[in-house]
């Protein structure tokens, strides 16, 4: 196993842990987006360009955006 792959796998594992441990939902949207990029890098290394494209579009843009909008609405509801 190449060192690059090892690093990528460990980064993904660490990224996921950080996302789960981030309590504040607004900040979690940011960590989730970074985690999406880490996954994308891993997928590129795993020779999966199609999947990487999907992941970068969905995992680090659309889903975090929806999370942000939901957080905003949820906070607004509390006012």
């Amino acid at each position: 196993m190449t060192p690059l792959l090892v690093v990528a796998f460990l980064l993904v594992a660490a990224g996921a842990t950080v996302v789960v441990l981030t309590r504040e939902p607004g900040r979690q949207a940011v960590t989730l987006s970074v985690y999406g990029v880490l996954l994308t890098l891993l997928f590129v290394l795993l020779q999966a360009p199609d999947v990487a494209l999907s992941q970068v579009a969905v995992g680090s843009a659309v889903v975090p955006l929806m999370v942000l909008l939901a957080v905003r609405k949820v906070r607004g509801g509390k006012r």
Partner: peptide, 14 residues
């Protein structure tokens, strides 16, 4: 090439 309806569709919507 890599990509397809799903990936391109998400990009277009974005």
């Amino acid at each position: 090439t890599p990509g397809g309806g799903f990936q391109g569709g998400v990009v277009l919507a974005t």
